[in-house]
């Protein structure tokens, strides 16, 4: 009985140690904008935010998995745009049913990701370079299949991101939440997840131990690509359009979310749930600053400052924990 109480106490302490800093940061931001921005701390604003983050959330989950395995995927924004354009093409031009078109778009994303993983793992080429190439290829293909035009897909996709009446959040948001939980489970409870951490910590010793690294890397990158496809679908449904220019610079927002959440760019360390908190920090900042009516330069300066500050605080916290 006593033992049980002690262990549950320890669990709470551990949870606080893992998520406490981020939760404080989120509450502080909410408080700040609540005071200074008009109508910020209202259910409508919070629900608006919830319904606008599913795309960046699932991309950031994919990015976390890749970063933990010591890789990086710079092509996420372009792959998102390519998948979205492919979705529009399949739905509007080929008149395929929605489920088939969505499947096609997600599969295309997964293929791009898988190709990234295979080339970088099998030929030992830095993922930075391979995915930089994919960034260009996918963006170019997106322009190609749309003729550089924004396409209106109409409301057939709308249900996907329209708020569900009693809940106020959208199907997309629920899916994104499920993706976060599934990502955390994959990372901690599956062989693939543990292998990813091992590869990210020391790829050479994993190979020495006789474990093949190519297959898991291909799988991780394919998951990341597939999630970009899903994000493309979420974004197109929210905006009722497919836009070959969408997702420009998204790789940086996704990496920022991961880094704020404490994922190491050197691999081996990170958490999907914490990445989700990172996404929240960024989206609260974005919405709050817009609601304050801040100018573009101020928005950029503040966002950059918050990214550096949060990583700085995290590293100070870790150092003091070691002492």
């Amino acid at each position: 009985m006593k033992d049980h109480a002690v262990s549950s106490n320890r669990a709470i302490q551990q949870t606080l140690a893992t998520y406490g800093g981020l939760l404080v940061a989120i509450l502080a931001l909410l408080g700040f904008f609540g005071v200074f921005a008009k109508n910020f701390l209202t259910a409508t604003t919070l629900l608006t935010m919830a319904n606008s983050i599913p795309d960046i959330t699932v991309v950031a989950v994919g990015m976390t998995l890749v970063l933990i395995a010591g890789g990086i995927d710079l092509s996420v924004g372009s792959v998102l745009a390519l998948s979205a354009c492919c979705l529009g093409w399949l739905m509007v031009d080929l008149k395929l049913p929605l489920w088939l078109a969505s499947l096609g778009a997600i599969a295309l994303g997964a293929c791009c990701g898988g190709l990234n993983g295979w080339i970088s793992a099998a030929f030992r080429i830095p993922a930075f370079i391979v995915t930089l190439g994919m960034l260009e290829i996918a963006r170019g293909s997106a322009y190609w299949i749309t003729d550089s035009n924004t396409k209106y897909v109409g409301s057939s996709l709308g249900w996907f991101s329209d708020p569900i009446a009693p809940l106020g959040v959208s199907v997309s948001f629920l899916i994104a939440t499920a993706v976060v939980l599934a990502g955390q489970w994959l990372l901690h409870q599956t062989v693939l997840g543990r292998t990813a951490v091992a590869i990210g910590t020391n790829a050479e010793s994993v190979r020495m131990a006789g474990i093949r690294t190519t297959a898991p890397m291909v799988t991780l990158y394919a998951i990341c690509g597939g999630l970009c496809g899903l994000a493309g679908m979420m974004q197109s449904s929210r905006l009722s359009t497919v836009d070959p220019n969408s997702g420009v610079g998204m790789e940086l927002s996704a990496i920022a979310a991961c880094v704020i959440g404490g994922t190491s760019l050197r691999g081996g360390q990170g958490s999907v749930v914490r990445t989700f908190f990172g996404v929240l920090v960024i989206s609260i900042l974005q919405t709050g600053l817009a609601q304050l009516g801040a100018t573009d330069p101020i928005k950029r300066i503040v966002t950059g400052g918050v990214i550096i500050l949060s990583v700085l605080l995290d590293s100070l916290r870790k150092q003091s924990a070691i002492r």
């Binding site: 109508n39 604003t45 608006t48 836009d243 220019n245 817009a290 609601q291 573009d296």
Partner: peptide, 25 residues
Amino acid sequence: VDSQSANWETNQANTIAASMLNAHP
């Protein structure tokens, strides 16, 4: 009541417009 730059972009405009709607019901 509000005038902000969304840099010609659909997605940025979406975020900013949503905030405008919340700030100015």
